[in-house]
Design a protein around this nucleic acid. Sequence first.
DNA 1: CAGTGAGCGAGCTTCCGCTTGACTT
Length: 776
Amino acid sequence: MAKNLVIVESPAKAKTIEGFLGKDFTVKSSYGHVRDLNKNNLSVNIDKDFEPEYEISDDKKTLVAELTKLSKGADTVWLASDEDREGESISWHLYEALGLKDKETKRIVFHEITKPAILNAIENPRDIDMNLVAAQQARRVLDRLVGYELSPLLCKKVKPSLSAGRVQSVAVRLIVEREEEVNSFVQTHSYRVMAQFPVTADNQEYTLVAELSTRFDSEEEARNFLTSCIDATFRVDAVEKKPASKSPAPPFTTSTLQQEAARKLGFSVSNTMRVAQQLYESGRITYMRTDSVNLSKIALGLAKQEVTENYGGKYVKTRQYTTRTKGAQEAHEAIRPTDLNAQTIKGTNDERRLYELIWKRTIASQMADAQLERTTINIGVSNSDKQFVASGEVVLFDGFLKVYRESYDDDHAEDKSDLLPPIAVGTSLDLDKMEAQQRYTHHPLRYTEASLVRKMEELGIGRPSTYAPTISTIQKRDYVVKGDIPGVMLDVKTITLKNGKLKEKEGTEKYGSEKGKLLPTDVGALVNKFLLQYFDDVLDYNFTANVEKEFDKIAAGTCPWNDMIKRFYNSFHKQIVSTTDNSGKFSGERLLGVDPVSGKNVFVKIGRYGPLAQIGDTESEEKPRFAGLRKNQHIETVTLEEVLKLFDFPRSLGEWQGHEITVAIGRFGPYVKHDNAFYSLAKTDDPAAIDMDRAIEIINEKHEKEAQNTIRVFDNDAEMKVMNGRFGPYISYQKTNYKLPKSVDAKALTYEDCVKLVQEIKPAAKRRSSSKGKKA
DNA sequence: CAGTGAGCGAGCTTCCGCTTGACTT
């Protein structure tokens, strides 16, 4: 057995490092944390100074046993987890879980995975920093207390199986408040005036496009100005040229990679991370969960060489960036190609595209500034004190722009590089055309996944490893959905002056359409309202930043961790108790009006299964009638008329093949029911308009599809079927599914084969009960 | 996947950060 055991966090890292060290070293991975608080209870002993009760995580038991065995046979165990709060804690948990001894344990750290860095680390070991471990423990306990006291309260007061936490609840708040900004936005309009002047200079024809420096509030003012311009003359009053330079963006961190991959490649945040993980595991890029913009010396040297070879020496500018991100821990390098000489790689389409993006960004970060010249031309109007302004930009030296240009969320922010004609002050200009057009102001843009990540990073909320999971959590809890906003058509008036005459035109233009945006659901909005009302301190945008300052004090050894937790918990727990005792159900109920048929009140609110409509008072003797709202209906905006229609279901269509057909709206949308079987309507179907013919069509379509997916049936047993599904062939037997191994030829199975396979194969776990099933 | 919704109350859920595969109909 090797004399030395090195433990790092990631298996890919372990493989690389093993190559740097000699045969006396075995390098293993802990796969992240090995111990944690028990998932099923609080596991923090409030009465014993908040002592946490740790246990080895279920999926780490065999790993810990293996590492323990290896450590017993080694002279020295090198704990080489990351150099940040979580990494220090991982080392300490390993120390505890493996039962290590001080004498034979050494703690080492490195920021880059290079041979010199590793060897240097081995020569400079230290002890585990228990202050840093305490800071992590405070972070862990705080998150557990907040999450496990708030979530049950939400379940009780709002709706079952909800959750709240330091990070997710603030993410939801951001989305809810942005939606409120959009809804309360008051749209105004103004008239923008553009003019075109033909110019001949250096034997070339140009069209000089200029915008009036002021806008008009009313149509009348705009018309008056254009009328006054019929007899006006135009003259160049000033030409100003200013040199400018642009610097490249720093190399990628997790957050900036997610943003750029979304803008340039259209990737979702989780797709970016999945593809990056593949690139990392195949050794193409450095670690993809990082908040650092730092590049290793080796990388800087390689980049310089690559830039020089491809573009020449004057394009080189070696730079080291410093992070400005709140709470960055910088345990890793920035995300970069491991081999900067490889401009492209082999792999899937997504892998190649993401890799090229990373390569370009890294290379560009080590290139010279772009040199520009910005020109502004002011054009005077003879009978007005107003001026037209034309501006343009010329690139004198492209520098890093040769390789890479960062994108912006707002397309309008892209710089326009109109080429302006060389022209002297005093030149008089002929007007070709002038146009005043109605422009509307735009509401703030809703968040995309990627812009939410940017905002969270700005607030210091969440970490590189949690951005993607947080986004999926708030969608899984149904606080937020990803969707499109169609926008509205607005009337746009245009007044044109050409050849000394005014012409007017009415048109329309689409405003406010958005794609792939995060939208709050009724539940999300209600939960946010509840939390803001009773726990505004935890929902505060600065809450995380403030507790981070306290964690820093703990890490510096100037404050005991449980003192900090006690201070927080005393007031927090009081709020929990008083809210539990003093507040009633929080349902967001809204009275829409009176049902004309029964004369009873009609409400909408959040029920046990989501938004619902209710006819009749809850307190009345007679049981109220209920109906779930449709997906596109919202508590705040739905009307009485729309709600009443929901009570038209279930609706009978008559009898077919001896059984009644009904159409109804269920949990998963509208459906047709026949002979105890359910058939979902197509998205294009209107449940109110379904007739007998269409219902039969829907039923037959589903039967055909099922027949197509059936590989084998058996005459002697209707419950045994061999089917073809999304994940390959499987046996369906007595409502349980059994996935067939690849070695089996599904078409050739006999009934006896199937019976045997059903006994051998572990049934496919059902998604819903999977968490429960594991435990039992 | 499938038609719930009050109230009662038993029993359960739930957090954030570190890591990968296993698994899904």
